[in-house]
């Protein structure tokens, strides 16, 4: 059942990334909703599930992009794994911690992609930081913060999750 749910989440995220997200881009930068989802899965379900979902999502997204397959898989997988480790070390996830964590995760993910890019005279480090890495990290943090607010403040899933656990 869980595999089916994760499969549906991955398929939906890829569909959203390729179609709808270009309409919400700011300065030609769109948020990485997949990265935000992998962070949440890592935080809530642990490092193993975060890693596996991250690896598969990275692979799936690279099939519909010119991006390098290895960098895409490793970046998303690393984010899911680290989110799981971070979730284990923290007693409570506050909005500030989550938003800061997403900024770091997004920067790490884009850093891996940047490292894998072949050098190009136009696309130097400063260009990458200015036009992709920093704006996307901010964008991802905002989207993650909104998701947090929506899930735990509005839908009150916290109580539901606790009810399931006990």
């Amino acid at each position: 059942m869980k595999i089916l749910v994760y499969g549906c989440i991955i398929a939906a995220l890829i569909a959203v990334h390729t179609t709808v997200l270009s309409y919400v881009s700011v300065w030609d930068v769109k948020p990485d909703v997949g990265l935000v989802a992998v962070c949440f899965i890592g935080l809530l379900a642990g490092e193993f599930e975060g890693l596996i979902v991250g690896l598969i999502l990275g692979w799936g997204m690279s099939l519909f992009s010119a991006a390098d397959l290895a960098a895409s898989m490793v970046a998303k997988g690393a984010v899911g794994f680290l989110a799981g480790l971070a979730g284990r070390q923290m007693a409570q996830v506050t909005p500030v911690v989550l938003v800061s964590g997403l900024v770091v995760a997004s920067a790490l993910s884009n850093g891996i992609t940047l490292w894998s890019l072949k050098p190009n005279e136009q696309q130097d480090l400063w260009w990458a930081l200015r036009t992709v890495v920093v704006p996307q990290a901010c964008f991802d943090a905002v989207v993650g913060g909104l998701c947090y607010w929506l899930i735990w403040s509005r839908l009150n899933l916290d109580r539901l999750a606790e009810g399931q656990e006990f």
Binding site: L43, L44, A45, G46, E47, F48, E49, G50, L51, I52, F81, G84, L85, A86, G87, R88, Q89, M90, A91, Q92, V93, W152, D158, E162
Partner: peptide, 15 residues
């Protein structure tokens, strides 16, 4: 929100 405590030590090593 309470963070995850579900993954066992074995799952962490496997990951």
């Amino acid at each position: 929100r309470m963070a995850n405590f579900r993954s066992s030590y074995g799952a962490r090593r496997l990951a």
